[in-house]
Design a protein around this nucleic acid. Sequence first.
RNA 1: CGGGGAGUGGCGCAGUCUGGUAGCGCAUCUGGUUUGGGACCAGAGGGUCGUAGGUUCGAAUCCUAUCUCCCCGACCA
Length: 411
Amino acid sequence: MRCSSYFLPTLKENPSEAKVPSHRLMLRSGMIRMVTAGVYNWLPLGLRVIRKVENIVREEMDKAGAQEVFMPMVQPAELWQETGRWDKYDTGLLLKFKDRHDHAACLGPTHEEIVTDLFRGNVKSYREVPVMLYQIQTKFRDETRPRFGIMRGREFMMKDCYSFDINPENALKSYNIMKDAYHKIFTRLGLDYRVVLSDSGDIGGDLSEEFQVLAENGEDDLLFDPNGEYAVNVEKHNPEKCNIPEDELQKAKGIEVGNIFYLGETYSKPMKAQIRLQDGSDVNAFMGCYGIGVSRTVAAAIEQNNDEKGIVWSKEMAPFNVGLINLRIKDDECNKVAEEMYELMQQKGIEVLYDDRDENAGTKFANMDLIGLPWQAVIGPKSIKNGEIEWKNRKTDEHINLPIGTFPEGI
RNA sequence: CGGGGAGUGGCGCAGUCUGGUAGCGCAUCUGGUUUGGGACCAGAGGGUCGUAGGUUCGAAUCCUAUCUCCCCGACCA
């Protein structure tokens, strides 16, 4: 992609409304723009990062045996009335409205009702389970106080997965398969995270764990013992069940990027989602649900990886692998080398953002540092007269000169 | 929802107390000089001050209402 034709509106100054690094940097680097409180446009650069996260999530979900579906954003009131959640959320996050037939509906904040309805209408036999269905989709929760950019938005991108089994034992197997997949996902994304026990809240069920990215600006308070025996969200902390002395517990702030719930019959019972067993009897499906805040994960990664110059992307999440900087767009030699390198990288499948604008060196460096691609390839008269290109590692700030047409290791 | 702060060209802000119809930096456009860390010179365009009422000869400035955004708290499958 060429900067000269890329829709990438960067900001030199900090927008006044952005108080945390991720929000500030996402606005400045041209990843997002706010439409209204908690609702954002994702611009091309930001969307590329979202897609990277989505693809990793998708790969690991598929490997774990889950199957991708796509459920509706608009959900009829009836299904929510079946579980009692229509009235329960009357004061809160459900954004309700009526269609032209005066039919009550809501924007989906989560999909337990929808997926349970899908399951009960189409799965009847123990032979057909376990079933794990997931989607990556926009959610809407009418939060009373959206904040920190997309960290707590009202509309956001989420991966939600649901499992169905014939008994608690099998359901826990599904739960653990998902837990394992989550470890793989957050490890691949290069995030420093902890798994903590959490309160199930309104979703119900009796076992839930959260995947928390450690960050100063996290909204959740965590407690864990250094040996890893005990780790909780403070809302779940129970001194009686904790063998560790209070003063030996470590405290940390976390951003909840994923959570997994064992639901049991919470939804299948009121919605009569039953499975016929070998002996001809029917049992309620034992369910689990598993969420990952895809857009929030992007913010969490930035909270954890930034410096005074801007974002520092991991290889897996970076919107492009390389930022190619041509310092002298009007110099024939520089231009020739830059164009050749741009072509070569594309041929090699290296995703490259080519700054081909007629700007000052300082502007280009500052912009590329802000965007935070893992590598910068700098083409200027100094290096090409030796037949070399200067490569800069954004994270380590190491500079190395390599012959034109070659690449640093690990790119 | 309670408390606090703020709305003035695209962005960041000054002006408001002590009314006299708007200013600065960045960005944008034109021309030129530049080009290894957000360069310089000259010129140009762009706002009627969140919105609605009111007071006044006159309102960005005073009064009332309202909308929006941000922060703290409560809330947050």
